[in-house]
Every structure is written in C-alpha cells, then in structure tokens.
Design a protein around this nucleic acid. Structure first.
Lengths: 204, 204
DNA sequence: TGTACATCAGTGAACGCGCGTTCACTGATGTAC
DNA sequence: TGTACATCAGTGAACGCGCGTTCACTGATGTAC
C-alpha cells in the first residue's frame, strides 16, 4: 500500500466531526449564542482546549454547520425542479423538504433558528446559501417558456417566494411533528399552487 | 385630590418598564437566551435582586416583550385591511409594515429573532399572536364577495400567506436598512400582487 | 528496514470573571383608627 | 390631622458554579536520511 493518507489527519477529522455532531445535538433546544464551547467538548469527551485545534470559537463552528446543513442541497433541489409539469414539481419540491426534515431535523432546526439569530457570521452564511438557492431557482424558471416576457426582477421575486416558502414549510414541519406532516405538506402544496396560479396570470 | 392611585405602584411600573426597555436594547445584537438578568439590571441601575419583583426570569420578561411588540397591533392591521381595492390594500399593508419597522425596529427584530429562537415560552407567545393575526385576516377575507365558494381551509391558507409575508417583509426591511426600504417594499408589494392574482384565479 | 528528529492533536492546571439565586435588611408608602 | 403598625420595592452581601482563554506539556504520527 502506498502512503496511508495520514492517521493523524483522519483522527483530526473524526474529532472535528464529533464536535459538530455534539454541537448540533445541543442546539436542538438552545440557540447558538447560548451553547458554550466547554459544553460541546464535554459532550465529546475531549479537553476544552482541544476545541481550538478545529475552530476559532463557537461562531466559526456555527458557520461550518451551515455548510454541512445546506451545502450539499443545491444538487438535490436542482433535480427536483427539472420536473416539467407544475403540479408534479410542486409535489416533488414539498416532498423533498419533508424528507429533509425527516432525515435531518436538527440541521433544519439549526438553520431556521439561526437564520435570524444572534450570531452575525452565521446569519450571513445562511443568507448566502439561501441567496444561491434563489439564484438557482430563478435560472430554472428563466429557461422555461412560461417566463417569456418576464423581467429579471420579477423572476427573482418569484424564485425568492419559492425559497422562502420552502424554508417556512421546513420550519412548520418541524414545529408540527411527524403526525401532522401530511397536513402541513398539503398546506404547503396549496400555497405553492396559489403562487403558481399567480405566475400564470402575471402578464395578463 | 382623592386617592393618588399609588406612588408605590407607579414607581414599580416605571422600574418594570425600564427593565423591558433595557432588555430590548440588549436584544438588538444578542438573542434572548444569551442576555443575562444581571446585564439587564446593570443597564437600568438597580440591584440584580430587584429583577425578581417584576419577572420570574428572562423567559418571563421575553413573553412580556412579545405582548408589548404585537399586542397593540391587531387594531392597526384590521384597519389597513378595510381598504376595499386590492392594489390599495396591498400598498397600505406594506406601508404599515414599513412604518412599524421604522418606529419600532428593536421590537420587530426581537420578534423575528425569537419566532424560532431558543426559548419555548417566547416562541409560543409569538406563535399565538401571529395565529390571532391570521384569524383576523381570514375573517376579513371571508366577508368579501371574492371569497364566494372558498373553503374555510383555503381562506386560512391565504390569510397565513399574508401574515407570513408581512413578517418576512418586516425582517427583510430590518436587514436591508433604511436606504433600501423602498426597494424592499416594492418587492413585497409585487409578492402580494402575485398572491392576489392567484387568489382571483383560485376557483377557475 | 532502522534511527533520529520534527510536527502537532490533544492534555491538564490555572486564571480571573460574571452568572443566577438566597437571604435578612431598610425605609418609603399605605392604611387603620 | 396625627399616630402606630403593615406592606413591599429595592438593597447588598454571600454562595457555589461554569465559563473562555493562556500556557507549557506529552506522546503518537510523520519525515529525512
């Protein structure tokens, strides 16, 4: 075998991930600004000082969590939007959000909570990711024949509504709990249908 | 003069209000769960123990702030919705939100931040107030001829969209700052126009 | 393959500090007569 | 109006505790020869 790619580096990654995981768990019922660095290291079982080998402080860890929560989502969302028919696209979009909430409730809660939370760097990181989603959605819409005659500004407006509704739906699903998932999803679909109707008549 | 209605009681109210005001100022760049009781009393200039004469803890103070921020708003919103024409109603609604953000930015920021924040009692209090807003908006819509044939559920859906968009607009206005107020307001109006269009064609 | 030195993730003691809460208190305001 | 007692908003000392950060360290992993 050639060059083991670093036992040391692998172990460091493992500790870093353990810190992120422990923080995420603590963030389920606290906000970032009230979770302490010592709390996190205690949960992992390392000395408080080890924290500094990975992050400059809790804000830094928060930014890393934003990347973990949203970074890999761009591909998935782009995929859901390839659906050509309006109804089917709405169904897939809402289903995707519901699945995300089911699979990674803690990540979703973290993003919902810190989107307007007390840590500026984290707010900025979330805003940047959501802005990228909106751009991607706008690009998909722009390529469609239904968007003929639409201004760039109006397309951005529409895309923004889609993204904002996805975030609100995610947050509503979290609050509602699994037993009410279908009810909340149905409501989210009707909302998107209303927006879709508005889109169809925008240029009347 | 007959019975001075209590010097003592008046002074107590004054201290209580001072605690609320000081907390609100501290909350401009922190979240509720990270503002300390001692921080608040220090800002007011009373002993930490005086706090307990007014609130059981910071969560309790937070709930009082929710009432202060949203309690008196029901009348104002109801008024804006009396506007019969769609366009005029949208303009008045957005203008009302913009004015609220201009007049009470700290209250608005507090509500936006704690709506999904780390303190359950405060989240619940905000959710309750927003739910009441949605009910009031739904009642106004229900009374209109355009709502003929609409189910109760669909009316609630529509009202929910209105309220959610007001909250998002308020939050966007805060983030943008005064110089971008007109741009954000214009965007908010277009969004409401899209929803309004969707409403008109909902039963097609 | 073996040896000698460098790197660096994680340690553990120590620091000064502000926190929330308790308690018995003080003295101005309120009330009964 | 005057006096004697009750109430209670705010005080100040004290407590035990966990916090973030510093520092010199250790010992396993990595590297050069």
């Amino acid at each position: 075998m050639s060059h083991t790619v670093g036992i040391r580096q692998a172990q460091k990654q493992k500790t870093r991930q353990a810190l992120l995981d422990a923080a995420l768990r603590l963030l389920e019922d606290q906000s970032l600004s009230s979770v302490g660095l010592r709390e996190v290291t205690r949960a992992v079982g390392v000395a408080p000082t080890a924290f500094y080998r990975h992050f400059t402080g809790m804000a830094d860890l928060g930014v890393a969590l934003v990347e973990e929560a949203l970074g890999s989502l761009h591909a998935t969302i782009g995929e859901a939007l390839t659906e050509p028919a309006d109804e089917a696209r709405i169904d897939r979009t809402v289903a995707l959000v519901a699945e995300l909430v089911r699979t990674s409730p803690a990540h979703v809660r973290f993003v919902a909570r810190e989107q307007h939370g007390g840590v500026a760097a984290v707010r900025a990181a979330i805003g940047e990711q959501l802005g990228r989603f909106a751009d991607e959605v706008a690009a998909v819409f722009a390529a469609e024949p239904e968007s003929a005659g639409w201004s760039r500004d109006d397309l951005d407006m529409l895309a923004g509504m889609y993204v904002d509704h996805m975030v609100m739906t995610a947050s509503a699903l979290l609050e509602a709990g699994p037993e009410d998932e279908e009810r909340v999803s149905a409501l989210a679909r009707r909302r998107l249908r209303l927006v879709s109707l508005g889109r169809r008549h925008w240029l009347d």
